[in-house]
Design a protein around this nucleic acid. Structure first.
Lengths: 351, 351
DNA sequence: ATGGCAATCTGTAACGTTTCAGTATATTGA
DNA sequence: TCAATATACTGAAACGTTACAGATTGCCAT
């Protein structure tokens, strides 16, 4: 197991990985001096500092994470907390890449802390805070009154949320403007002559559920369109459930002629349901959908899409947590990204 | 910053998180005894053991990771190494969930170590080994002669690969039988009367590229079909590139009447290319595709699919690494999963 | 009684780092 | 010249854990 353990107490040149002691021996200085020289402490002579840093670079010195962590309590870890059964697929990969890309230039590692259907969402948070397993946390599926945010705020754990909260607490967030998304979607559908619209919403409970609903309602009254209720399912339901419900809805007399969908996978199901009912996309009904990767236009060119960039969300969230850890004001680390325009891929069919 | 620091040297009841010292004080034992009692060491009296464990549970003692890591060198970390620009989207989320679900019942944390296009794939591996940042590693995009596997083997770092190597070294792996996949795909197409087949392969260089190619070739000769070369693109190319090349191919005189595709997203592009060329899926050409989530049948019901379960791969890989760390023989931790049957969603159209 | 031996328990040191409280030397001000 | 002070460095202690090398006790065979 332990490969080489030649060194006794610092005099004999150490094997294995170099430590401060190794550097101290090589430079003839004390470990304290070396430690401070490496972090540019002011009370170290300019030449000594340079010398130490040179040697450190030469032999590839890297501070031992466990040593630092034990001594300082800093873990150099950011934890991304994910729901393992409800999270959108592309969300996971894109956000991880976004976070990674920011952390890559720092000493921080990314740990993924999962929780599942069966668990209380608070559990992973409590674990992280109680065990001090991370210096900062990123959470998603944010709720208006989010106990996780409150808890972390109370316990001094820096964090950032994907989506906003609404309880008067200030913390970093990254959010996509789903209010505007829903409004633009409705406006676009209205401009195509669609006036009986259904919304496949985010799961009730999450903050952006409200944003989406409000945007939808606001635009409906703005353009004078009406809503066909479709609230027995949300994007959290299975493909099959959404497909079935859509088909049922489309067979009713008072069926919608337009859909707004908050997620790409759900949109596949909606379209399938529409076609199950014998109707045709672009002729009988139009659909505006959010998507996070550029695939929906391959599925059906008649689909109208708005892009949400999860990779950007990831890097933004990572920067925010690091910022908070670094002492920035949490209120200055909030970002609401505007939605892009609704995009079409095939010329509109006149109704 | 430091919240409470009442305790001086163990006599005064400690604040903050309980440590062995806290337990020692509460039970009236020495820290050594407490430490051993918690890990069921044989030289501890049965009653003492129970007593210590009871108190530990009551006050919610959790060993300090930094302490353990510094002392023992064990990190209790498994690292998943991912390519941030070539990895399949669903692969990332599913495999993370699979790994997580296994690690959840252990003290292990999952850290994601990314590398990008611009980097040498060896770099993250060297980092992990040199800094001892993980007790075990999971890699994907495995090559027949994989320098990462060789390096980790040489340096005693337990690991598992998604996909096999082919250099006579023995290590745990999880692999999907792409040879059989390609054969079954070809057989299915042949049974539908398709005899001029094109293969959209994995990227050359990866081990399963060879497996897929061989299976494809073997089945071609078995059923007496012929290959239409389509090797200017692989599933690593962009959607647009695949789409364009497919359209070009389908406009040629000697065009394929069947495709075998190694990835779902690429299949979307193939179908788009087919339709760009004015041809119809199921009538002019059939496509068999691998998929990892059940979405392709929504895209075009004529598609034929074979499912590959990445979540299973993840949990399997995690179990393998843990097994190796735990002392199991690496050769006993290898698994080749059979492909499911080729599935159809719409009745075949006679040609 | 005495030596030997299990059975239990314990103190000390060490892992690598940072911080505290210095020490030694040179420099300054009067 | 002498104290005061700044500059550059240092040892010891501590973070929480485990391993090593004992120490204490009771019991048994002699």
């Amino acid at each position: 197991m332990d490969r080489q353990r030649t060194d006794k107490n610092g005099e004999t040149s150490a094997q294995g990985r170099p430590t401060l002691k190794t550097l101290a021996f090589m430079t003839g200085l004390g470990v304290t001096t070396v430690s401070r020289a490496l972090k540019d402490a002011p009370e170290i002579g300019a030449e000594t500092r340079r010398r130490v840093q040179l040697v450190a670079k030469q032999i590839g010195y890297r501070p031992n994470r466990a040593g630092v962590r034990l001594r300082t309590g800093r873990t150099n870890v950011i934890s991304l907390v994910l729901n393992t059964d409800r999270e959108i697929m592309s969300f996971v990969s894109d956000i991880i890449y976004g976070v990674s890309e920011v952390l890559a230039e720092t000493p921080y590692h990314l740990i993924v802390t999962p929780y599942s259907r069966s668990q209380d969402p608070m559990e992973p948070i409590r674990y992280l805070v109680e065990t001090g397993s991370a210096d900062g946390v990123i959470i998603s599926r944010t709720q208006p009154n989010d106990p996780r945010a409150r808890y972390m705020l109370e316990h001094g754990m820096p964090f950032a949320t994907h989506g906003r909260t609404d309880m008067g607490l200030v913390h970093p967030y990254h959010d996509f403007d789903n209010h505007v998304f829903a409004m633009e979607a409705v406006r676009r559908l209205a401009s195509m002559g669609r006036h009986k619209l259904a919304l496949l919403s985010p799961p009730p409970g999450l903050t952006y559920y409200g944003h989406t609903l409000n945007g939808f309602a606001d635009a409906l009254s703005e353009v004078g369109a009406s809503e066909i209720p479709f609230n027995t399912v949300s994007i959290d339901h299975t493909i099959e459930q959404i497909r079935t419900r859509t088909a049922q809805l489309m067979r009713r007399e008072n069926r919608p002629d337009g859909f707004v969908s908050s997620a790409a996978a759900a949109t596949l199901a909606i379209v399938a349901g529409i076609e199950d009912a014998g109707l045709k996309l672009g002729r009988d009904v139009d659909v505006v959908s959010k998507q996070s990767s550029d695939l929906l236009h391959l599925f059906r060119p008649e689909l109208l899409v708005v892009n949400e960039n999860f990779r950007l969300a990831g890097s933004d969230l990572a920067r925010s947590v690091l910022g908070w850890i670094g002492g920035a004001a949490p209120g200055s680390l909030q970002r609401l990204v505007a939605t892009s325009e609704v995009q079409a891929f095939s010329p509109p069919v006149s109704v």
